[in-house]
C-alpha cells in the first residue's frame, strides 16, 4: 500500500452524536483530496480526528504507512499539519507573528529559528516587515498566510486544510489557492482539503468526496465534477446551487435532514 493517507471505516462520536459513519479516504503521496459538504456534515471532524483532536473514534488511519493510535507523538506533528478555517481565530491574539512561528521550531529543537522564520514567511509571500506584528495588525489573507507558514515551518509532508479560504475575499482566496497549489508542487506535499465550495475543491483537488450527515454519499474525479456527472441527488443539488441564484432551481431543492 503506497497511499500517504489511508483512512478506512472511520467512525467518530461527540457524546451520543454519531458524527462520522464509515468514512473511507485514500490519498496518494503528493495527491490532493477534496471533501465537500454543508456545515455540520462532519468534514472538520475527519481532519480533527486524524490530528488527534477528537477522542472518541474507531477505525483505521494509516499515515505514511503507520497506523495511528490514541495519541499523537511529536514525530506525527512533523509529518502532518493542519490549517484552520478561521484565520481570525487560529492565531493567538496576544502573540506576535514571530512568537507564533518560533515556538514550534523551539519545541521540536530544529534550531536556527531566526532563519527558519524568515524562510517560512518568504514561502508564503510575506516579507520581513510582518514578523513583529500582532495578528490584529494583519488582514484576513495575511493571517491565513501566517497560519500556512506556521504549518509549513515544521516541514511536514501532509497539510490538512480546513476551509482555508472560506473566510477570505475572493481576490485573496485566489492568491491563497495559488500559493497552496505552488507549495504542493514545490514541496511535494499531500493535501486533504475541506470546503463547502464545490468550485474551490474542483479547482484544487484530483479526487473529491461529497459528505452528508457524516457519510460520504458520492465520489468523483475533478473531471467528472467539471462535467457535472454526479449520481446522488444531494450532490446534484450542491452542483446546481453553485451556479448562483435562480428562482426556479431553488424551488426544486429538498432538505436533507
Amino acid at each position: 500500500m503506497n497511499a500517504m493517507i489511508d483512512i478506512s471505516k472511520l467512525n467518530a462520536w461527540f457524546d451520543d452524536n454519531h458524527v462520522l459513519k464509515d468514512v473511507d479516504i485514500s490519498v496518494p503521496a503528493n495527491g490532493s483530496f477534496g471533501l465537500v459538504g454543508e456545515s455540520g456534515s462532519g468534514k472538520s471532524t475527519v481532519l480533527r480526528t486524524v490530528t488527534g483532536l477528537v477522542d472518541d473514534w474507531e477505525g483505521n488511519i494509516l499515515v505514511n504507512n503507520k497506523e495511528l493510535t490514541g495519541t499523537r507523538d511529536k514525530a506525527f506533528y512533523r509529518l502532518a499539519q493542519m490549517v484552520f478555517q478561521d484565520p481570525f481565530g487560529s492565531l493567538h491574539p496576544r502573540h506576535t507573528i514571530d512568537r507564533i512561528l518560533t515556538e514550534p521550531v523551539n519545541i521540536h529543537g530544529l534550531g536556527n529559528s531566526d532563519a527558519r522564520v524568515v524562510e517560512a514567511l518568504n514561502q508564503v509571500g510575506l516579507d520581513n516587515s510582518f514578523r513583529f506584528r500582532y495578528p490584529h495588525q494583519l488582514s484576513g489573507g495575511q493571517r491565513q498566510r501566517v497560519a500556512i507558514a506556521r504549518a509549513l515551518i515544521l516541514e511536514p509532508k501532509i497539510l490538512l486544510l480546513d476551509e482555508p479560504t472560506s473566510a477570505l475575499d475572493v481576490s485573496i482566496q485566489a492568491e491563497v489557492l495559488n500559493l497552496l497549489t505552488r507549495l504542493r508542487h514545490d514541496l511535494g506535499l499531500t493535501y486533504i482539503m475541506v470546503s463547502h465550495d464545490l468550485a474551490v475543491v474542483a479547482h484544487m483537488c484530483d479526487d473529491i468526496a461529497i459528505m452528508n450527515h457524516g457519510r460520504i454519499v458520492e465520489r468523483a474525479t475533478a473531471t467528472q465534477l467539471a462535467e457535472g456527472k454526479l449520481d446522488h441527488p444531494y450532490s446534484q443539488q450542491l452542483y446546481k446551487a453553485a451556479a448562483g441564484y435562480d428562482r426556479a432551481v431553488v424551488d426544486s431543492f429538498v432538505d436533507w435532514d
Binding site: A174, L177, T181, L198, H203, A222, T223, L225, A226, E227
Partner: peptide, 19 residues
C-alpha cells in the same frame, strides 16, 4: 478582476488570475 479570480468548475488546475 473580481469575476476572473473565482475558481471555475472546469477541471482546470491552472493558476487563477489574481487581482
Amino acid at each position: 478582476g473580481l469575476l476572473n479570480c473565482l475558481p471555475k468548475m472546469d477541471g482546470n488546475h491552472a493558476e487563477l488570475p489574481v487581482l
